[in-house]
């Protein structure tokens, strides 16, 4: 029961808890009216190699922690959302703290590929109003978890 993002192994996070947290706040998707924009689109997550996955997941989760979740809680009055938010934020925090992608030179092209994917996501995020973007990114956690599940050993 652990994540294996290529060389990066992460224990102590139960994917079931993240799914339950998201299921409890799925109706946040109804607050996302910009249905013509999908942040985590196929070009970001499809055909990611194992080696690339560690770089990409780290960039995505750090962004969620520092930009998507931060300051969002001030607006999330609904306690159900606050609770789900806390579960996701703290578990993402655990994952990021345990990810140590290799910084060696021969991995440069792989990390660059992961960075280009992440930039696709980040650029789409920044083209929206910050609160709309946070709501959309929050609503797309099911897409993120579905992708993360591919690297989870049940």
């Amino acid at each position: 029961q652990e994540f294996q993002f290529g060389p990066c192994r992460v224990e102590g996070v139960v994917l079931q808890e993240l799914w339950e947290a998201f299921s409890a706040m799925k109706d946040i998707q109804a607050k996302d009216n910009i249905t013509s924009v999908r942040l985590l689109r196929k070009e970001v997550l499809q055909n990611v190699s194992d080696a690339e996955s560690c770089y990409l997941i780290r960039a995505l989760l750090k962004f969620y922690l520092t930009t998507v979740f931060k300051n969002y809680l001030d607006k999330a009055a609904d306690s159900r959302i606050r609770k789900s938010f806390s579960t996701l934020a703290n578990n993402f925090f655990v994952i990021v703290s345990k990810l140590q992608p290799s910084q060696e030179n021969e991995m440069f092209s792989i990390s660059e590929s992961a960075r280009r994917r992440f930039l696709l996501f980040q650029r789409a995020f920044k083209q929206l109003d910050i609160q709309a973007a946070q709501t959309k990114a929050f609503g797309e956690v099911d897409i993120l978890l579905t992708w993360m599940e591919k690297f989870y050993q049940f």
Partner: peptide, 10 residues
């Protein structure tokens, strides 16, 4: 309650 994330970031 407050998890580690909240205590560090918020």
């Amino acid at each position: 309650y407050q998890g580690e994330y909240e205590s560090l970031y918020m």
